[in-house]
Simulated assay, not measured.
Amino acid sequence: MQVLAHEPGGIPVALRSRRWTRVLLPAFLLSMLVSCFRHARRADVIHANWSICGCVAGVVGIVWRIPVITTLHGEDVTRARHRALDRAVLSLCLKLSDRVVAVSPAIESWLRERYPGLAHKIQTVGNGIEDELLALPLDRPDATASGRLRLLTVGSLIPRKGINRIIEAIGHLPNPRRVRLTVAGSGPELAALEQLVETLRLGDDIEFVGAVEPRMVVDLLAKADAFVLASHSEGRPSVVLEAMAAALPVIATDIDGVRDIVEHESTGLLYDGDDTFHLAGHISRLRESGELRRRLGATARRRIVQWGLLWDNTSQQYASLYRALSVETGAKKKA
């Protein structure tokens, strides 16, 4: 079961890359259902993450008459846009859940448009970031003084994350030696990405550090000059919010879920995901202009503070939702 659920990219990636894992899926879902039945009996609220888990929790909630909240992420919407089976799972999840939380306004908007009859269940609660990121210094050592712009990207090494785009963009630079990219994450694309680095002769310019603990992500952000996201699709990427809180300028793909939080030329730089030369141009701009890096980073941090995107605020929103559902359910049972 570890192979199915705990690899980078989760169950969808495991099912695509290792077809034999499909035989594990029925047993996996059944064990999840049994476990949920056992642990939820005395609960006041069941909170699930991801649409398939929301379906399982929804069945248990009906049996035990317990309200269910399901939090949906970008991957839920991305899969539903492209596959009928995933749309069916998402639809069932919405019907079985008492409340549905989207992690970004873009996801909420798409869900409301797609399922207008269930719109009353849907709301947004954004993920928070760690307070310590806001304590990182605004002023970083000048990249031109050290000779290299320190870029960071964090994410699973799966096709959707587009790490190859960043590598290709660095290969387009007139002098790649003036940039140093750190890639934090693991996944099935590692060998292909390492081969790409070797083919482009960028071995001295790109480092793969593997999967890292959350504490280590803070350290990596503290040592970076800029953050890069090259994903093909996202919900509301927490790592971008973390980079903004760390006062890093962000270069990111111009896609739903990202343009909600990164404003071009204000809190970061957006680019057409298919245009690696465009990405290379943004990297060059940040490499050459310390003033631009400082301005974008400072504005990004101010935006995080203005939005109140801290875990304390997120937890308060969820606590209010738990209490409201508990009260509603109690009133229905008495009636």
Rank of each mutant, 00 (worst) to 15 (best):
H6M: 14
H6Y: 12
G9Y: 02
G9F: 03
G10M: 05
R16F: 08
S17H: 10
R18S: 09
W20A: 11
A27R: 15
F28K: 04
F28A: 06
L29S: 13
L33S: 04
F37W: 09
V45P: 10
V45Q: 09
I46N: 07
N49R: 15
N49Y: 09
W50Q: 14
C55L: 13
W64I: 03
T70S: 04
T71A: 10
H73P: 11
H73C: 15
G74Y: 08
E75K: 12
D76A: 03
A84N: 07
A88E: 06
V89C: 06
L90I: 01
L92Q: 06
R99T: 02
R99Q: 04
A102S: 14
S109G: 09
R112L: 02
P116F: 09
G117M: 03
G117P: 05
H120T: 08
G126H: 07
I129S: 01
D131C: 05
E132K: 03
L133H: 04
L134Q: 01
A135I: 00
R140T: 03
D142H: 10
L151V: 00
L151K: 06
T153H: 15
E168I: 12
E168N: 06
P176C: 15
V179E: 04
R180C: 00
A184V: 09
P188I: 14
A191L: 10
L196Y: 12
L202Y: 11
D204W: 08
V212M: 08
K223P: 11
D225K: 05
F227L: 00
F227T: 03
G235F: 07
A243K: 01
R259I: 14
I261G: 04
E265P: 11
E265V: 15
E265W: 15
S266D: 04
S266Y: 05
T267C: 02
T267A: 09
L269A: 06
L270P: 02
T276I: 08
A280D: 04
S284Q: 14
S284T: 13
L286H: 08
L292M: 14
L292I: 13
L296G: 10
G297S: 15
I304L: 03
V305T: 03
G308Y: 07
G308N: 02
S315G: 13
L325E: 01
S326C: 13
G330S: 02
G330T: 00
K333I: 05
A335S: 10
